[in-house]
Design a protein around this nucleic acid. Sequence first.
RNA 1: UCCGACGUAGCUCAGCUGGUAGAGCAGGUGACUGUUAAUCACCGGGUCCCGUGUUCAAGUCACGGCGUCGGAGCCA
Length: 462
Amino acid sequence: MTDASLPTPHHLPCTIGDLPVARIAEIAAFAGQRVQIRGWLHNRRSKGKLHFLQLRDGSGIIQAVLFKGDFDEATFARADHLQQESSIVVAGTVRADERAPSGFELQADGLLVVAEAHADYPISPKEHGVAFLMDHRHLWLRSRRQAAILRVRARIVKSIRDFFDSHDYVLVDTPIFTPNACEGTSTLFETDYHDQKAYLSQSGQLYSEATAMALGRVYTFGPTFRAEKSKTRRHLTEFWMVEPEAAFLDLDGVIDLAEDLVCTIAQDVLRDRGPELDLIDSIRSEAEEHRQLKLRREALAAIRKPFIRLDYADAVDQLHELGSDIPFGDDLGGDDETILTQQYDRPIFVRRYPAQVKAFYMKRDPADPVRSLSVDMLAPEGYGEVIGGGQREDDHDTLRAAIEHHKLPMAAFDWYLDLRKYGTVPHGGFGLGLERTVAWVCGLPHVRETIAFPRLMDRLRP
RNA sequence: UCCGACGUAGCUCAGCUGGUAGAGCAGGUGACUGUUAAUCACCGGGUCCCGUGUUCAAGUCACGGCGUCGGAGCCA
């Protein structure tokens, strides 16, 4: 297998003898034992004949204590001059100690420097501006708060997948290249697809309607793309969305499903990521303090069934009482969503929006054709729209008329109309925006911190 | 696309009615046997975003540009 013509890779030293390697997250299990921990130097303090190294291994941070008497002079002196983020291996005995930040510390007796970091590591322990941190996102992710957010995000993704898998929904991935501007609403990214135009998907929903007719219950979970020039704390140009779709699911069924999913997410995160939530709470910027967010454990504990259910008409009435001047028939603006959600400590479903503000495929309310069988879920504390969905138009001729009315290219929807020709059934689903959900669960001011490498209108790097 | 704010050391910022540049952190040297964003002493570090103009004199005032941030619309 080895190609002798290739240069020999040079191997970095990264073990101290044959000591067991301990992960900081599981350090309690090694209490009293001599181990080695491999990671990066997070911070360093010194008291002369005593050095404190904060060691980060990805699973956590632990303090290594080095006494001068336990080391040769050169190694001890080097420990006092190591740059932040140098990769190191520390050997020592795991000890419970109240003086240590995590309750455990490593009484060090060996130090191996894998690779010293350059002296100009840009992210110091003091505060930085968001623009600078975003330019150094690849390094910013090493900070405790950012790592905690990514852990919460990963838990939410798992929660979503477990929820649908255990409710008999089949994961079906939908294409990212699409031939048309599907819904005719959003601005899409255009690409050259072997001499024809293709667009990056803004939603997998239309395809999921097809697979729902094949498999009954399906969900798609992947990235979606919007080219709109939106510069707000709620927008990314590339974001992840989970979209369940099911045959024989009506509007009430869609709402019940969304409610169960959101409750499951809240419970799972509360149960499994409490320490991460506490950490995020403990490191808040001034701007965040200003928002007077609840502690995240309290906010998540309040997410219980039943959520508030309001018809659009009632929501508008309530907004008028609260001082909004929203015209009846308009979609809710950001301010309206904020005002409304601040009245309740749990999410709100707003149902039956005017058909004219929703997409062409929304089914009209048989009892009142001006309205659609649509629903948005608005999260508390001003987080706004996290879910949008509803029941789909299932009548062939009505759908065809809607496509015409929206002046969409009929040829692009022949396959979609087929679904109504060959055994149409009532069906519905919704889309949940992952990043907005993570921002809400973590109490973050901006969705850009909820994904490792955010893509924003003006930011493509790193 | 529109509205608003900001741009000074590697970073976060101060710099008054215009008079020629300052702090903390980071970096360097040293002290300290329990530090918790350690502390203390000393040292190095600047195209004050760019351009034009006003002025004896511009980080400071005016205009134009560039960049960043926040918001609106649209949406998840």
